Amino acid sequence: MTTLVVSHPQCLDHETPRGHPERADRLRMITHVLEHERFSDLVRDEAPLASVEQLIRVHPSEFVERIDAATPMMGFVQIDGDTTLSPGSYEAALRSAGGAAFAVDEVMTRRASNAFVATRPPGHHAETATAMGFCLFNNAAVAARHARARHGAGRVAIMDFDVHHGNGTQDIFWSDPNVMYLSTHEMPLYPGTGATGETGAYGQIVNAPLRAGDGGEAFREAFDVVILPRLRDFSPDLVIISAGFDAHERDPLANLNLTEADFAWATRMLMDIADDKAGGRLVSLLEGGYDLEGLGRSVAAHVMALMRG
């Protein structure tokens, strides 16, 4: 077994207006970086389209239909101030959610040791019935519910180290005792959620906010003191990473100062718990990261760690 990378060229067809940070060049950069010979041992596969069944475990069917119906034949449709639909957006979103579920299948059935899903649009801001923050469907939530429904996973943990808090994932699992959501993020920052007092109906929401200007030392302390002990105590059957790389020091949308070494370290820490508690089962999903050089370097470090490099 080895590390699986899941992607699809259709995810390039989710177009955004000129100057928008969540752009197709992000995925082109990742594809370029992972073509390096040091990644030659990766197993690669294309993301399938998510099924309606997979989506409606998370989102009401009316919401899914609304996104489909709103997708334009040409040009852009604005959902909110920073979230748009283009002609290719709906199918790209289906690939993102479907790729997440497919990666879960491969990891849960031991056809891959772990997986990185390099798709877009991202997902962690998408709430139960609201698309927002560049996100249409919540890919991590689709993956978690799929793991439980299809593979009998008793407990699933989602660790989100994107610089922006995953309000959508927190919203979806607020009252679900079988899914733990853990997050490090800059605060205050969009979308304004993620305070330490937001703990969920069963205490299974774990927020460890960081302050503008914090770097690797504060990030690693949050992991050591808050995140890792709670994750270990939860004893998940699957670990999902919402892997946003916009806490990188080069990123234009936030003010944390992480480096690719910090992301590699966090990945190894999460893998250690997955090894100990979940038989190594871990699926990582791309979220943010908007400086192309910082994104490329961070994804390379993240995937190398997944490969146990």
Rank of each mutant, 00 (worst) to 15 (best):
L231V: 06
A157R: 08
F245C: 07
S175Q: 11
Y190V: 09
L238K: 10
A149H: 10
V142D: 02
A201N: 07
T193H: 07
T196P: 00
C135M: 11
V225A: 13
G133L: 12
T196M: 10
G203V: 11
P191C: 09
I241C: 14
G154K: 14
D251I: 11
F134S: 06
L256G: 13
S242R: 03
G152A: 10
G244R: 03
L253D: 12
A153L: 12
A201Y: 01
D214V: 02
F137C: 02
A212F: 00
P177S: 08
D224H: 10
E198R: 08
L256S: 13
E186M: 13
R148D: 01
E186D: 05
N178M: 07
A212I: 01
V142Y: 00
N257S: 14
R230F: 02
R148P: 05
Q170D: 06
A131N: 10
R220C: 05
A153E: 07
A153D: 06
V142W: 01
H185A: 06
F223V: 00
V179L: 02
M159Y: 04
S183W: 01
L136W: 04
V226S: 07
S235P: 02
N138P: 12
S242T: 05
G197H: 14
V225K: 14
R148G: 02
H151N: 09
